[in-house]
Design a protein around this nucleic acid. Sequence first.
DNA 1: GCAGACCGTTCGTCAAGCCGAACGCATCGA
DNA 2: TCGATGCGTTCGGCTTGACGAACGGTCTGC
Lengths: 188, 188
Amino acid sequence: MAGTRDSGAPLAVIAASLQRERRRTGLSLAEVARRAGVAKSTLSQLESGTGNPSVETLWALSVALDVPFAQLVQPVRPRVQVVRAGEGPRVAAEHADYTATLLASCPPNARRDIYLLAAEPGRPRESDPHMPGVVEHVVLSTGRALVGLTEEPVELHPGDYIAYPGDLPHVFKALETATTAVLVSEHV
Amino acid sequence: MAGTRDSGAPLAVIAASLQRERRRTGLSLAEVARRAGVAKSTLSQLESGTGNPSVETLWALSVALDVPFAQLVQPVRPRVQVVRAGEGPRVAAEHADYTATLLASCPPNARRDIYLLAAEPGRPRESDPHMPGVVEHVVLSTGRALVGLTEEPVELHPGDYIAYPGDLPHVFKALETATTAVLVSEHV
DNA sequence: GCAGACCGTTCGTCAAGCCGAACGCATCGA
DNA sequence: TCGATGCGTTCGGCTTGACGAACGGTCTGC
């Protein structure tokens, strides 16, 4: 068991999501049920939190509502947030020449973290593989760096972009002073 | 109906995901079923693609496998990709002083796009609101810019970060030449 | 060699999801 | 006023998913 808690009450979340998404479209319960090919009694029960839908039923509804399915079981989210350069939580670094600042963490269990990386030339930052399915995106902001899979890193210049699977050994090695980059770590 | 197609065959995807995630943990089918509190016959049928699980059943399995639920209905994904500065598809800009390069688009229906922004001082880039639920994250790489909601933009310096709801009017106005930033547009 | 443990699959029973029909309730127009 | 239309909820039925038990298979060790 990990911190991968969604919200503990999937049926309640689904009930709320169904109603919210339906309201968004402005359609009536009967109309959505008709388009989805499910009985409106079924949809009524689902929106009221009663009952435990099958995947096919939920799928049909997600199509009818034109919502990416997973959104029906994924809670909602918030507002404006600013993190100034130098502020924000630093994540552990093996050595002093490398800092990673967490800008936006998975809320509450989403699928991506955004970091600001700052590194100096010297020992490269080797990363052990993360969970399978993780994809990392790096956009180099300033300086120059070798980035990517350890077995075949790529030299990036300002503005360059690279994506690679995070579940394989990978590296970030600054080639100039004051090298900075934006890292988006995506948990699939 | 939009391009919001997931994969058309949720049960097959779930079957594959269940087996993949279970293999990942190295647990046996019986053990996972035991931990999830479902009959192993049920899990067996699900992994074989037979049957149409209820949400509660799927939820119990996602907890037992320690997987964020949505991952069970979300296909997997791929490899390495590099976009050099200046390359990559430009998205339409109202005027010449602003370019947005699409680095990583939603594959195939994920939930985020990553752009590299480059702008010069002058007319600000006003954006009409996108779909509800969209959140935009901006990390300023070089230069200086006013970013955020149109009604109260924030001045960002290199390394600064801001997130704001994309379904409200928002703006990106460069204050120095050669202002660049990374934009992550998240579709919830 | 064989009893034992564990695996994953198959089968029959029971409960529960899904459905259609009927209901009460608003709105609208003749 | 009253029929007609559409809404969302509640009520029996049929279907089907979930369960437990039994099955065949492999591996271990007495």
